[in-house]
Amino acid sequence: QARLSSSRGHIEHMIHRLSAFALCCLAYALLLEPRPLQPAARAAIAAPVRSPVPLMKGKAKAAKAVKVLLTGDVKGLGKAGELVDVKPAYAENFLVSKGLGNIASKEVIARVAEEAAAAAAAAAEAKKAAVECKASLAQTFGKNGLFIECQVGPNGKLHGSVTAQDVASLIDQRANVKLDKQNIALPSISELGTYSADLKLHPEVSMKVDLVVKKNPITIS
């Protein structure tokens, strides 16, 4: 009878534990079960997301540049007589108001273009003439150089000196080419010998000519 009573108590204890476990499983299942959303919550989820700041559809177009004919030199922009492209505000508030330029009309733009074309043609012609002059001088003086005779003293030193004007005169006489003495560069010449003369025929065309300084056979006492 004592054993029967002990077995019954053990069985009741097991039943109690199983009941508690079953209740825990049921509670967990209820927590995991999806619940229907309230109407307000469903509406909030379905509504599209809107930006709090209205979006710009595009950037504002920059003001179109205008052409200005400069009447004065403007550092970093151009010189008087040139056409430049600038913003309208800069043109009106600075260039025009300061007397440094005027808004160019179609007629002015056309005239400046014609003048620029004429100037470019003249510059090209001047360079072409300088190239031809260089070829002519090279043919005349390229092989033997340009000779100049000078009076020499007993010590072998020249009486006086050879100047750029002397060279310009010789070139004019022997090659029929006129050069300004400012465009002839010479080293210091004080005795007989061969020297190099730099001739600038054009801003983009230059050449060197040998200048041979010889003793003049006619001695002037």
Rank of each mutant, 00 (worst) to 15 (best):
Q1E: 04
L4N: 05
S5Y: 11
R8F: 11
R8S: 07
I11D: 15
I11F: 15
H13Q: 10
M14P: 00
I15E: 15
H16G: 02
A22E: 12
L23P: 00
Y28P: 00
A29V: 04
L30P: 00
L30W: 14
L32E: 07
R35G: 00
A44E: 09
A46R: 01
A46T: 01
A47R: 06
A47D: 02
V49R: 06
V49F: 09
S51T: 10
S51V: 05
P52G: 02
V53S: 06
P54M: 07
K57I: 06
G58F: 13
A60W: 14
K61V: 15
K64D: 07
A65K: 13
V68D: 02
L70G: 01
D73L: 08
D73F: 10
K75E: 11
L77K: 02
G81M: 09
L83K: 01
V86T: 02
K87H: 08
A89T: 07
A89M: 07
Y90F: 15
A91C: 07
A91V: 05
E92P: 00
N93E: 05
F94A: 03
L95S: 03
V96K: 10
N102A: 08
S105L: 09
K106R: 10
E114S: 08
E114N: 01
A116C: 03
A118N: 03
A120Q: 10
A120D: 10
A121F: 09
A124K: 12
A124P: 00
E125L: 15
K128D: 09
A129E: 10
A129F: 10
A129C: 01
A129K: 12
A130N: 03
E132V: 11
E132H: 10
E132Q: 14
A135L: 12
S136W: 15
L137E: 06
A138E: 14
T140P: 00
T140F: 01
G142C: 05
K143R: 13
N144G: 08
G145Q: 03
F147Q: 00
I148Q: 03
I148P: 04
E149S: 06
G153P: 01
P154N: 13
P154K: 14
G156W: 14
G156N: 10
G156I: 06
L158C: 04
G160A: 02
G160L: 12
S161Y: 15
A164C: 12
Q165M: 14
S169G: 01
D172C: 01
A175M: 08
N176I: 09
N176K: 11
N176E: 09
K178A: 01
L179W: 11
L179I: 07
A185T: 09
L186G: 05
L186N: 07
P187F: 14
S190T: 07
S190I: 07
E191N: 05
L192F: 10
G193W: 13
Y195C: 03
D198Y: 14
D198R: 13
L199D: 01
K200Y: 14
K200R: 08
K200V: 01
K200E: 06
K208V: 00
V209K: 05
D210I: 02
D210Y: 11
D210S: 06
V212F: 11
V212P: 09
V213L: 11
P217L: 06
I218H: 15
I218W: 13
I218E: 15
S221Y: 04
S221N: 06
